[in-house]
């Protein structure tokens, strides 16, 4: 089990009003699953993503990531979990513009305290895996959107995370490039990588083998994707 949440909640207090962004979510995601988390804006899917990405802590409930309880860790412990257990892919890529593709991919290893030589080898391997073996010395502004997102995927995979967490990964890409990126995800999943994609696009969710729909901070629908697009 990679993810197990129990009554996971996030309530914000705005003045006298309590906003229930997430109101008790119970969810289990097994190793090797490819899940799309869907829902309209305001459904709580961003909050949910922040919580399972260990960027935020819940106000109530429990969360086990890869078997470890993470819902009440300190900020530095959460940083270590993000570094070791989670690989993020963002809609806006979020690469460091002045650093080369190779350096961008190495970044999590630097915070993990890995030595220079090993860092380089592993970063080169991951860049080759996403088909950018010949672009390692390029900086993000010199790369196309699809290439940038591939760099981001390589970066997310660098620490062999238990969970690959993608937030609208095709949101800034044209549909052809978006499909290419989704193929990368499908391939990674086929090799056993657990993937959670947060999206509001049905086309994208079609690539996942399971869809979880959120509405008003609660799970609305949770079903297997029978006619999966591969």
């Amino acid at each position: 089990m990679v993810i197990k949440t129990e009554d996971l909640s996030k309530h914000y207090i705005l003045g006298v009003e309590t906003v229930k962004a997430l109101d008790g979510v119970d969810l289990e995601i097994a190793t090797g699953e490819f899940v799309a988390v869907m829902g309209p804006s305001g459904s709580g899917k961003s909050t949910f993503m922040n919580l399972i990405g260990c960027l935020d802590t819940p106000t109530a409930g429990n969360y086990w990531l890869n078997g470890g309880q993470v819902s009440n860790l300190s900020e530095d412990e959460l940083a270590r979990v993000r570094n070791q257990e989670i690989g993020f892919v963002f809609q806006t890529f979020n690469l460091l513009p002045r650093a080369t593709a190779l350096h961008n991919v190495e970044l999590p290893l630097i915070y993990a305290g890995v030595g220079v030589k090993e860092r380089r080898e592993r970063a080169e391997e991951k860049l080759s895996l996403v088909g950018l073996g010949d672009r390692m010395g390029h900086r993000p502004p010199e790369l196309s959107g699809g290439q940038r997102q591939r760099v981001a995927v390589a970066r997310a995979l660098i620490n062999e995370p238990a969970l690959l967490l993608a937030d609208e990964p095709t949101g800034n890409l044209d549909s052809t490039t978006g499909k290419d990126i989704m193929k990368v995800f499908v391939d990674l999943n086929a090799q056993g990588q657990t993937i959670v994609i947060v999206t509001h696009e049905n086309d994208i969710a079609e690539y996942a083998e399971r869809q979880v729909h959120l509405l008003d901070g609660l799970i609305d629908k949770d079903f297997r994707n029978e006619d999966r697009e591969i």
């Binding site: 990405g53 960027l55 900020e75 530095d76 940083a79 270590r80 993000r82 570094n83 070791q84 993020f88 979020n94 690469l95 460091l96 970044l107 999590p108 915070y111 993990a112 970066r155």
Partner: peptide, 11 residues
């Protein structure tokens, strides 16, 4: 934000 998401501690 990116650095923190990738595992940079406060320190």
């Amino acid at each position: 934000g990116v650095r923190k998401a990738l595992g940079a501690t406060r320190g």
